[in-house]
Amino acid sequence: MRFYAVAVYGFLYLPIAIIALFSFSAGRSASSMDGFSTGWYVRALSNPFVMEALWTSLKVAFFSAVLATVSGTMAALALTGMKGRLRAIFDVLVMIAVMIPGVVIGIAALIALATAFSAINPWLEVVLGRQLSMGLGTLIGLHGMFTMSLVVLLVRGRLETFDRAQIEASNDLGASPLGTFLQVTLPQIAPAILAGFLLAFTFSFDDFIMAFFVAGSETTLPIYIFSSIRRGVTPEINAIGTMVMVASLTLLIIAQILLRTGTLRAKG
């Protein structure tokens, strides 16, 4: 048993560990270790193309996560008030959205957007003198739409363990529906919402497949990595990959901790 466990984890994580290790190499080869240096990190961080791609990725990740968190939380709240068949249908739709392969969503989004744009653009050209095109907006929209499902699942999970009588108690004590939401519901589902935001952010930040289809002329960090690999892998790519991975893992761990800490303790 232990041997298999070691083998499985080795298989899973060895490639990642090797990339992390080679990123500290002093040599020019991306697939061997020649001495130790942090030079590739310095080089990556001072490469203007990397920094621009990083900035694009951060913008897309942040705004799509905000979009996903707000709409996902509202959807989860609406779903808890819903019962029976309608609820089952929505549950299945949310699950399916999470399970559909990214490449399918990417292609579908590309076709849908291209069709829509070619229908609308002639009119927009006349009215506003401008046209819609793929870019930041489509990236944010697509990522936000997809990661909304993640937020719905997390927030709904928390709402399920939440005693609805608390809402009635709050109403009974004189709080309006909005007051009840802000004072009773929100503080208790806040950890799940925050965890949902972090997951959505991480997902968007790491996504290559969907972004590839709708990025237009924009270059996110994963797209940059992909295109530079085609020109040959350098340890600089290893360094970028390692940084992305560490950042993502950190966010994921924070999300996990948030989900475990039960209710957020309100302050005096």
Binding site: D163, A165, Q166, E168, A169, S170, N171, D172, L173, G174, A175, S176, P177, G179, T180, V184, P187, Q188, T263, L264, R265, A266, G268
Partner: peptide
């Protein structure tokens, strides 16, 4: 609506707010 009625209720399972202290 319930939040404007001059009645208050003690719930069967109390429905206390777990994120607040007793005084809150």
């Amino acid at each position: 609506p319930s939040h404007r009625r001059p009645v208050n209720m003690v719930f069967q399972h109390y429905a206390l707010f777990p994120h607040m202290t007793v005084a809150q």
